[in-house]
Structure formats: structure tokens, C-alpha cells
Amino acid sequence: MTFDWIFLSAASSNTQRASCTHAAGPMELESQWWKGQLAGDIYHALRYKELKLPAYKGQSPQLSFRRYFADLIAIVSNRFRLCPTARHLAVYLLDLFMDRYDVSVQQLHLVALSCLLLASKFEEREDHVPKLESLNCLGCMTSMNLVLTKQSLLHMELLLLETFQWNLYLPTAAHFIEYYLSIAVHETDLHDGWPMANIEKTVQYMAKYADYFLEVSLQDHEFLKFAPSLVAAACVASSRVVLRLSPAWPSRLQRLTAYLWEHLAACVERLLVAHDGDVKEANKQKCQQQQKLQLASTVFHGSGTVSAVPQYLHRPTPQFSQQNCQPVQPSSLGASSYMPHTNLQAGTQPHGHLQPIPASLDAKVSIPFNRAYQVNGHYAGAAPCFDI
């Protein structure tokens, strides 16, 4: 009770200060608790609370559809610009509910969206919570012939609350990540063995890659085997590995997180394996796109001659349509234009469309890389084109 009281008091204090300084800018104090005087107390309260998280067994009969509904939550969450903690809490509620009940696939649509609404009510301000009318107007809802009603949502929300005994104070990796990122980069760090030339740029890339790995952890229920704080620490460690910062896990992060590299190794390797798969898929799609552009750049006439097509005739690759909930098409993103994993609107799946329960959804992210790194001397993958 002491830790819960500390957390709630700190959150209340930050909220009050945020309301007093709302006009100061878009960043509100209540969303930056890790910068406040009570950051340490709130962090320890979260660590204490994660010790009491419900057990997850991974025994749902619909477990094969779990990835699909996690992507659905990501789509709707991005459409309404909900915070990462709301999205991660929603997926966690869905995982726990599916683990306890045998629910039909059609009903899981209602469950997933109800989880997102509950999570947004718990994590977001009231004016950010999606409204029923807005949900029903989404293109992905109409394409699946889904119509939510107030009665069905209230009934499902009540069932969810009763399932979790009215306790939504469930820490996820997203609740820890910013606290760890606050010291993830330091001027004493080395990049490829040399002092960093631009620490501000390094901090920006660290945040982007941490967001990417954080979203990777949502894609696979196997990450629920690890404590949320450990997953968050592993996301930071993986980002440091990819960005070639040394040491990979400095002593300051060991002290802050209370995790040694040995504790993180299994989770880090799983994250980097997923990252390596994303890189290979991105390179494959990039090659395919270049081949299509080469074929489209020439026109064959009946006489057998070949003439170049003017560049203004080439239309850009269509981007994500929020109304239709279609994914971003893969693009060749350079180091200066890299988009974090969370910004890909369709659950970060450039070649998968959200259709009514496909056989499998293999979500990938388009990131160009060209160097190699190693973890513990036995994992090799692609590292970023990152010049600091």
C-alpha cells in the first residue's frame, strides 16, 4: 500500500503542476514523471507492482490470432495518437484476457477495442479517449463490417474490469523505457571506439531505436516471459548495440535498472534476431522496388526501340491512409530520415494488410543497414548506417 500511495501521490502532484503550466508548451509534466523529484519513488513503486503482475501461461486457443489483434490495437492507437503506455497496456490486457477465456475470433475484435478504450481511459486525458462514433467511422472497421454499440462496449468493459478485479495499475515495458532513456546516452560513451561528435543526435537515435525495439516486444507473446522492466532495459541495451555504442551496458545503467548484462542477454538476443529479420526483409523489398522502377523507366515500342519515360510520369509510392487503415509502403529511409517503429501506422507491417483474420501476419519494418555487430561473440546481424 505504501508504494501504491507514493505512486498515486506523485502522479497527482505531477498532474496538478501540468495543469498549471499547460500553456507553456505541448509537453506536459504528467507525461514526464521521470524528470520530476519523485521519479525514483515512482520507479520503485512500478518495480514493486510488477512483482504482483498476473501470471501469463500462453494457453489461449486463439493464440495464433494474437498478432493480428495486437496490430489492430496498434492501428487504432496510432490513428488516435494515443501514448505508448496506453497501447502497451491495451495489448497486455488483451493477452491476459485471451489467456483466461476461450473467445470466438469475431468477439475478439470487440475485446481488443474494449481493452484499448480501457487502457486509454487509464493512461490518457479524457479528451484523448477515442469516442464511439469516431471508432465506427474508421475505414478498417467498415471494411470488416464491424459496428460497435454503446451497450456492447459497456458490457465488455465491465467484464474486463471484473476479470482484472478493477485493477488496471499494471506496469508494462513502456512505463519504464523513458526512465532508462534518461541516462541511456552519456558523453563518456564511445562510438566505434571513438568519442561521440554529436551527443544530441545520438540521443535522438537512441530514442528512435528504443521505440522500435519496444514495439518489436509487442509483436511476440514470448516477451511476456520477461519482467516489463527487463524488457525495457533490453530495448535500451539492444539500441546501444545497434548504434555501436560502448560499453554496450555501462555501469550507470546497471545501477539504475539493477540488471546485469547476463540478466538481459536472452531478451536482447531475441530482440536483435527480430531486428535482423526486419533488415533482411527491408533489403529484399528495396531490391524488388528498384527492379520495378528500372522496368518502369523504359517503354518498349513496336519498332523495338527503347525510350526513357520522363521522371514526372513516375508517381510516388502511396503512403498510409489513416481512414482505410492501410500500412505504409516500404521506402528507402536513410539515416537522417529513419522513422521509429511506432510511427508505422499499421502495426509496423509494410507488406501485410489488416484483413478479416488472415492466416498469418508477418509484420516487418523498412530500415536500411549495412554494417555488422556481434552480441556476446555469437550473434551477428546488420547494424545501422549511423554517423555521429
Rank of each mutant, 00 (worst) to 15 (best):
residue 103 V to D: 08
residue 384 P to E: 10
residue 360 S to K: 00
residue 386 F to Q: 06
residue 113 L to S: 02
residue 122 F to N: 02
residue 155 H to P: 05
residue 185 V to N: 00
residue 173 A to L: 11
residue 277 G to N: 13
residue 206 M to K: 03
residue 388 I to G: 02
residue 377 G to E: 06
residue 173 A to Y: 08
residue 166 W to G: 07
residue 146 L to N: 07
residue 66 R to N: 08
residue 15 T to V: 03
residue 253 L to I: 13
residue 158 L to A: 14
residue 55 A to D: 12
residue 100 R to I: 14
residue 158 L to F: 12
residue 15 T to A: 03
residue 7 F to E: 08
residue 158 L to P: 01
residue 135 L to V: 13
residue 244 R to G: 06
residue 180 Y to F: 15
residue 213 F to T: 02
residue 341 H to F: 11
residue 328 V to C: 03
residue 77 S to K: 10
residue 307 S to Q: 10
residue 83 C to K: 11
residue 51 L to R: 10
residue 382 A to C: 07
residue 19 S to A: 12
residue 284 K to E: 14
residue 331 S to E: 14
residue 281 E to G: 12
residue 78 N to Y: 01
residue 184 A to Y: 05
residue 324 N to W: 03
residue 157 E to A: 11
residue 163 T to C: 14
residue 188 T to N: 03
residue 214 L to A: 10
residue 316 P to N: 13
residue 132 L to G: 04
residue 140 C to Y: 06
residue 363 A to E: 00
residue 272 L to N: 13
residue 41 D to G: 12
residue 130 P to T: 08
residue 301 H to F: 15
residue 202 T to W: 13
residue 148 L to E: 01
residue 40 G to N: 03
residue 6 I to A: 02
residue 383 A to M: 09
residue 294 Q to C: 01
residue 332 S to E: 03
residue 313 L to D: 05
residue 372 A to E: 06
residue 254 Q to K: 07
residue 359 A to V: 08
residue 107 Q to Y: 05
residue 291 Q to A: 10
residue 331 S to W: 11
residue 9 S to F: 09
residue 252 R to Q: 02
residue 263 H to I: 11
residue 286 K to P: 00
residue 217 S to M: 07
residue 170 L to V: 11
residue 250 P to T: 15
